[in-house]
Amino acid sequence: MGDPRGIVFRGFPDSWLESQLGRPGRVLHNEGMEKKPRTVDPLRFTGRTIGRLLSERIESEAPYESIPWTPVSKSLHVSRVALLSTAGISMRGDPPFDMEGERKRPTWGDPSWRAIRADATPADVEVNHLHIDTGYAQRDLNVALPLDRLRELVEEGRVGAIAETHYSIMGFQGHDPMRVVRESADAIAGPLRAEGVDLLLLAPV
C-alpha cells in the first residue's frame, strides 16, 4: 500500500461510540489477543478483484505533492454546513446524470453537477450511478446525503445552520478524473461562497 502520509490515528473508546450511537457499539480492533484499535480496512467490502485493481492503480501513480488548505475559522455549532455526494443524485425536473453516455463509452463518466434542495426527500430525487446499488439511497437518502440528520444536528445545537443548497456529482470519472474538477468544482464553489458556507462535507459512494 506504499507509504500513506499524514495519517493521524485516533483510538476511540467503546464508550465514545456508545455515547454517539445511543446503543452499544464496537470500536474497530485488531484480531488477536490484544484489543488494539486498528485502522479502517478499505478493501473489506470491495472483493478481491476490485481490491487488486484499486491497489495497483494507487501504486502506479505518483504521491501528491502539496495540499491546498483553508483554515476552519468557526466552531461547528456556529458553522453553516453543506453536503456533497458523489452518488449521482438529481432533483426530478433537472436532467439526470448521463448513464446512456457511459454505457456507450465505458471509460467516460458524466462530469457535471446538480444542486439539491435542503428539504429534498427520496420522492424528489433520482439516483444514477452504474457502479453501486442505488436502491438504498433511493429508499433513504440519508445513507449517502444525510440532510435529515444534518437538520437534526442543527436543531440540537451541534451545528450552526444547514445550507439551503447541497450538491451531487457522479463519482465514476473513467479516464479523465480532472474533467469534473474543471467542469464542476469552480461552479460549485461559487454558490457555496455566495451562501456563506463555512464547511463542505464531501461523501463518496
Binding site: F45, P68, T70, P71, L199, L200
Partner: peptide, 28 residues
C-alpha cells in the same frame, strides 16, 4: 471526489472528505 475537494478548498471553502478508500490519499 478528492480532486473536487482540493479545488473547492483552494477556492476558499474548508472541506472534509468522508472516505471509504482512504488509501487513495497517497495519490490525491
Amino acid at each position: 471526489m478528492g480532486l473536487v475537494a482540493r479545488r473547492i478548498e483552494e477556492l476558499g471553502v474548508p472541506t472534509v472528505c468522508l472516505n471509504l478508500l482512504w488509501m487513495f490519499q497517497r495519490i490525491v
